[in-house]
Design a protein around this nucleic acid. Structure first.
Lengths: 218, 218
DNA sequence: TTTCTATTAAAACATATGTTTTAATCAAAC
DNA sequence: GTTTGATTAAAACATATGTTTTAATAGAAA
């Protein structure tokens, strides 16, 4: 019997573990979440994690890949579309449209399921996670997308010095990752009482004008 | 004998612990750093942490307060100065100057000593740290500064709806915190090969035009 | 039914971690 | 020189954690 036949017959242990890990990694961080937390939350046996995934690190990789690969595919497609469409017209790709192609899929994805919201919070934090494992897994998955973004913004803003472009993309990612984990994580701080309108429309309407102005500054 | 007399006579155990904790918390995160890591790095006995500080959490608090209290004082003074100067002239405080008053002290501080660089990386991460302890300690210390920034930017951009202002400050903090831990931490990623010119001048020249344009957009 | 195999359950391991306790040290005060 | 009190050192504790091992279970194949 091969594995495909098993996918539906076996208990949903694997999925339950992935969901629990996604949630807890997002809420408490990788280091802050124990396998016992995860298996407890998932209602499965402790050993199931090592049986199905091999290690805690491999579990993180699985959590990341499950959603980030398809999400990145969509983002890459949309950005490519904007770029190619502009090329055909012999124009520069508009910054606004590039930004929209980047963030809209993320935000739509966020609202697609409750688990996805956890995931977005997790990704928002992965950029700056002190743990090597987290950053490395994340960076490897985000690399092609970042490369594409760099290229298309170079086309969009050819007069910008390379260094400046990199810095501005860097600011953009900073603002966006902060937004992701603030809007999706448990950022219930007494300090910054953000008008937490989690809807995509608000976020997009706030993000795009700000970043566009920044990217095109001077 | 009182404690002041002891400060110089006793071993510099306390300082060594603070320095080691600052460095390791910045590099590995709060959860990722053990007391044995710290005392090993500092070359002191394990029990010294609990003797001098009481607990790991209290040590973090001490690390934060040691530098953040004086740093925030300087930032508050400079922002207040910009605001009051504008008020006297019956004008709005310029966004550019407010931003400069906010980030310049941080960057100058960063270059003032090698330990300070670690600290800046730590602060840059504290905004989004999954650990409650870290976020709470940090937020409590940053709260008055944030309040002041909110007020002065309200004066600088009175036509901006409150929600929009909050979102934009939020983006600003995101970009800045990312910058802080990228420039000071061990962000040696293969992915984003940032032109790592750590000098304040470059960072300021990149940051201010970008954020100013974003804040004043539309 | 019996056999076989994948999965689950329970327990055990080895190590790591924050904290506490108890003994040694060391410099000033008397 | 002895005493005192703060500091350091060494060991012990209790618990937590990732992983592995071994036994039980269940469900399809024979």
């Amino acid at each position: 019997m091969n594995q495909e036949n098993f996918e539906n017959q076996q208990g949903d242990t694997k999925q339950r573990i992935l969901d629990a890990a996604e949630h807890l990694f997002a809420q408490e961080g990788f280091k802050g979440t124990s396998l016992r937390d995860i298996t407890g939350w998932a209602g499965v046996n402790l050993a199931a994690v090592n049986y199905h995934f091999g290690s805690k690190e491999a579990l993180l990789r699985a959590v990341m890949e499950r959603r980030l690969i398809p999400l990145n595919q969509v983002r890459i497609e949309r950005i490519t579309k904007v770029r190619d469409s502009a090329r055909q017209k012999g124009r520069r790709p508009p910054v606004k449209e590039l930004l929209r192609a980047f963030i809209e899929p993320t935000l739509q994805f966020k609202e697609s399921s409750p688990g996805a919201e956890d995931f977005v919070a997790l990704v928002g934090r992965s950029f700056s996670d002190p743990d090597d494992t987290v950053r490395n897994v994340f960076m490897k998955l985000i690399w092609p997308l970042f490369q594409l973004i760099l290229e298309t913004f170079r086309e969009a803003l050819p007069e910008l010095p390379e260094k400046t472009l990199l810095w501005r993309l860097h600011f953009m990612f900073g603002a966006f990752s902060q937004t992701m984990h603030v809007c999706c994580g448990r950022f219930h701080s007494d300090v910054i009482k953000m008008p937490l309108e989690n809807d995509s429309k608000t976020i997009i309407n706030m993000f795009i004008p700000f970043i566009t102005a920044g990217m095109e500054a001077k």
